[in-house]
């Protein structure tokens, strides 16, 4: 199976990408001296809000240098040290005079000097409105989003597989009642159910996990039931039953291991769905409460700044996109790897 998985290059790449993202989520916040909630100030006590990215190591590439273009500045004020601290102006561009005779220009500044940040200060991904380091918040937010998604999917699997196994294995009235319950839950739109759950229990990581799991387990239950229906009449199960093997052992030792392939694939596919849902709920203001970040809350906070400080939106959006792509490609690879027909060339 591992061999089959390794042959799928896109999935293998996705696996390493995911591994990288998970490692970053775990360790990256500790790479900088800033905390996810700390509001960084300059020596005058002013908050360093909306600082541009600055990565000294990439200076030679000419990117993330901590500079910004200040548009429509009056040239008459350029010599005013209260407005432009010494050495902050790097370039004066596009001088122009308006009809009223005022001379304007655009000024390229070293924004860290302009904001009087302490020497040596560098925010790799910049700061948000409250002067919080976006690098730290982004990776911590990724961690939070991943934890929420993984726990939600774990709960979803636990309930779904158990429910589906019981329905599929015992069949009859148990199956009938069990599946009707599933249908009732499934009939409620996901967003409405999540919203009601969050409004009832209040916002928080635990609530978010439960809100995401409360409906999604139904899909897993249906899949598990189908797998159990498929396997319960197979020869190896019938013969095990004839030898007096008890139901619990039949379910967990004989049928479930055979049904795991589609279930694992389904779980892997459910993770990006949960991340997306968490981001969506955060975006509409139902996410985890401040100051804890998640990718969705970061997107929500920065949405009004898309045109002014686009990197504040682009970075969390990129992380979400990478997570989604990685999980999808991984699940594709897992599906193929679990399917023995792939190797035999069956369709």
């Amino acid at each position: 199976m591992i061999k089959r998985f390794r042959h799928n290059k896109a999935s293998a790449a996705a696996f390493f990408l995911l591994l990288f993202l998970i490692l970053m989520a775990v360790f990256a916040p500790s790479f900088t001296p800033y905390s996810y909630r700390g509001q960084v100030k300059n020596p005058d006590g002013e908050i360093l809000s909306n600082m541009p990215p600055k990565i000294p190591a990439l200076r030679f590439l000419g990117i993330a240098q901590g500079t910004a273009v200040l548009e429509d500045r009056q040239t008459a004020f350029l010599d005013d040290p209260a407005r432009y601290p010494a050495g902050c102006i790097l370039e004066i561009r596009d001088r122009r005079v308006t009809e009223r005779g005022t001379e304007y220009c655009d000024v390229l500044v070293d924004y860290y000097r302009y904001m009087k940040a302490e020497e040596g200060t560098a925010f790799w991904f910049g700061t948000d409105q409250l002067g919080r380091d976006i690098w730290t918040r982004l990776w911590r937010g990724t961690r939070v989003s991943l934890v929420i998604a993984l726990f939600a999917v774990a709960i979803d699997m636990l309930i779904g597989v158990s429910w589906g196994a019981v329905c599929g294995y015992y069949g009859g009235r148990t199956d009938l009642i069990g599946m009707r319950v599933c249908e009732i839950i499934h009939a409620i739109p996901n967003v409405i159910l999540c919203t009601m759950f969050i409004l009832l229990l209040g916002r928080g990581i635990g609530t978010m996990i439960l809100a995401l799991a409360v409906r999604n387990w139904v899909e897993t239950a249906r899949l598990a039931r189908a797998q159990f229906l498929r396997y319960k009449e197979r020869e190896f199960v019938v013969s095990a039953r004839a030898m007096g093997v008890r139901d619990r052992r039949l379910i967990f030792r004989h049928i479930l291991p055979n049904a795991m392939g589609p279930l694992v694939t389904s779980a892997t596919l459910a993770v990006p769905g949960a991340i997306f849902m968490e981001s969506f709920l955060s975006f509409i203001g139902l996410g985890i409460p401040a100051p804890e970040p998640s990718v969705g809350t970061m997107l929500s906070d920065a949405q009004s700044l898309l045109q002014t400080y686009p990197h504040q939106v682009m970075l969390p959006a990129a992380v979400i996109a990478l997570l989604m792509i990685a999980f999808h490609l991984l699940s594709n690879g897992l599906r193929d790897a679990f399917d023995p027909r792939e190797e035999k060339g069956e369709v």
Binding site: D72, Q74, F77, R100, Y104, Q129, S304, T308
Partner: peptide, 13 residues
């Protein structure tokens, strides 16, 4: 103008 972006335009006539 939004409070966040107002200072960027403060020098315009």
């Amino acid at each position: 103008l939004d409070a966040e972006i107002a200072p960027r335009y403060a020098e315009r006539e």
